[in-house]
Design a protein around this nucleic acid. Sequence first.
DNA 1: CCACGATCCTGCTAGC
DNA 2: TGCTAGCAGGATCGTG
Length: 297
Amino acid sequence: MPELPEVESTARSLRPRLVGRRVRSVGGVDWPRMLPNTAEDELRAVLTGLAVSTVDRRGKYLLIGLEHDRWLAIHRKMSGNLLLRPAETAAEPHTHLEIGLDDGWLLRFVDARKFGRVYLFGSRGELDAFIAARLGPEPLTDLSAASLTTLLRGRHGRIKSLLLDQAFLAGVGNVYADEALWEARVHPLRAADSLSSREIARLALAIQHVLMLGIERRGTSFSTYRDADDSRGENQDHLSVYGREGQPCPRCGTRIRRIAIGMRAAHFCPHCQRASVRRPATSGTASRSGTARPGLA
DNA sequence: CCACGATCCTGCTAGC
DNA sequence: TGCTAGCAGGATCGTG
C-alpha cells in the first residue's frame, strides 16, 4: 500500500482541491465491507450538503474533516487510490465510492484488492479514540533517539516486524522499513531490544530521513499507486534495497539479499547490515538465525 | 502483554 | 500461447 509518504502526498494534493468544497452526492458503494462502521445510506445522509474543512493525515490514514464535526478516515491498504475526476468521467474499474463535489468534480475511491476501508465519525473525539486505539507515534514529529529507546525496551521481536507494527510506530510500511534499516545499517532480523544506543540513534534519524525523502519525491509508485491527479511519485527510482534483490548495495556493492520475515519480504545488504544477535530460539527447532531461510521467490 | 501465522481480495507475472 | 502458483506497498484476529 501507500505508506506515510504516499498518504502525505495525497493529502497535500487533495487539500487545496477539497477544502471549501461542498458534498453534493454520495454513491457508488458496491462493496459494503469497505464501510465497517457505516453504510452508504448513512454516509449520504450525513455528508450531503457539508463543506470540507480540513484534509490531514495520521499514520497511513487520510483524514477528511467536514462541517458539524463530521470526519472521514480513509485507509487505502494495499491497492486503494483516491482520484479526483470531473463528474462526467467514466468510473474506472474497481470504483467503490464516489463523493460528488459542488465544483463538478468527484472524489473516487478505487481499490482492486478491496482491502481499503472508509470510516465515518460523528466527532473529533470519536476519531481520536479510533486513532489512539491503533496508532503509535508519528515518526516525523514524535520520534527521537530517546523516544525510540523507550519504545524498544523489552521488545524481543524482530526489529523489522516491529517497524511494521502501526501501534508501535505509525506510517512505516515494508518499503520504508527496509530502506530505513539499510540506511541505519541494522539487520532486519535483529531483536529489537538488542540494538545499541548508537544503532537506535541512527535508526531514528534514518526513519525520518527516508520518509522525508519519500515525501519530497511525492511517494513511491509501483504498478498501481497513483496520486489524486493520477500522477506517479518518483521515489521508486531512488530505492537502495527494496525490490533490488541481486543488485549492488549503493554503499558497498555487495549484492542485495531478500529473505522472508513472517509473510513479508525483507531486503538488506548482508555486508552493511550484520545479523549478529538473534532472539532466543522459540520452543521448537525450526528457524536458525544468521543463515536465514531461502526467501520468497 | 507479546510474538507470530493465517486471513481477507484481485491482478499480474514468472515459470512451466 | 495458455495456465497457474505465488507474490503484492496492510492490518486484524486468533493462538500459544
